[in-house]
Design a binder for these strands. Structure first.
Lengths: 117, 117
DNA sequence: TCATATACCGAAAATTTTTTCGGTATTCTG
DNA sequence: CAGAATACCGAAAAAATTTTCGGTATATGA
């Protein structure tokens, strides 16, 4: 059986629901990369997020697809090709991603001073 | 030595920075509980978030204090009393928490149908 | 021919987070 | 007096996530 997420989406409270969709290490970054709406291949996404291993991107893309935030198209070619594209539901999360990006930018210095080196 | 967070705040990108401050299981909920600005005792917070164990609240409150999002006051009384209060920096995250709360409320049905039972 | 690239997957290891349990000390309640 | 409540902490166990590694298959380019 394929890899399976242990903790499913959290239906207990709306805040936890939203968090559970994006809280893993790279999901918000993946959505941010896909924000333009242009489809991206896994290898492209990996180039944009070199800190993530291809394996973890694979796993998290799969979950994003499962949750309906991202859509996958497989082209029956060789070598294999597939593309991932943000869905309307995924796009509806972008304002949240945006505000986190802005907050992080605005408050970067505080944490840089506090935690760097 | 006291408990120590393994993964520190992520300074690599602003989005990850913000996420790393709130992505653990209960931090966003704790901030939401403290939103009014009124100080709360740990036992009160636990009553509001019964799904979390006192231990994990303790650990995450400690990290929130360390990151400057929450302030702690200890009263030298017996039995012990302490209070946690959201800081201005923590308050500045509330619009993000709000938008996640709203998103979760607006899209609850989709996931309820998909994942419940 | 050999290495590389492609997408993906399984399995195991490593890491991190969360839970569980027990213990500190004191006060109050039954 | 026994038990609960209070806040917190350490240690170990459990659970979840992420990394690492190797393997599938085929095509292209050196």
């Amino acid at each position: 059986m394929a890899y399976e997420k242990k903790i499913p989406v959290d239906l207990d409270c709306p805040l936890r629901l939203t968090m559970s969709l994006i809280e893993s290490k790279w999901k918000s970054c993946i959505l941010d990369e896909l924000r333009s709406g242009n489809p991206m291949r896994p290898s492209e996404i990996h180039k944009c997020l070199p800190g993530a291993t291809p394996r973890v991107l694979d796993i998290q893309l799969k979950e994003l697809v499962e949750d309906g935030l991202v859509e996958k198209t497989i082209y029956p070619e060789l070598p294999p090709r597939s593309e991932y594209c943000i869905t309307d539901l995924g796009k509806s999360l972008l304002p949240i991603i945006d505000s986190m990006l802005k907050w992080g930018t605005d408050h970067y210095e505080i944490f840089e001073k506090k935690y760097s080196k």
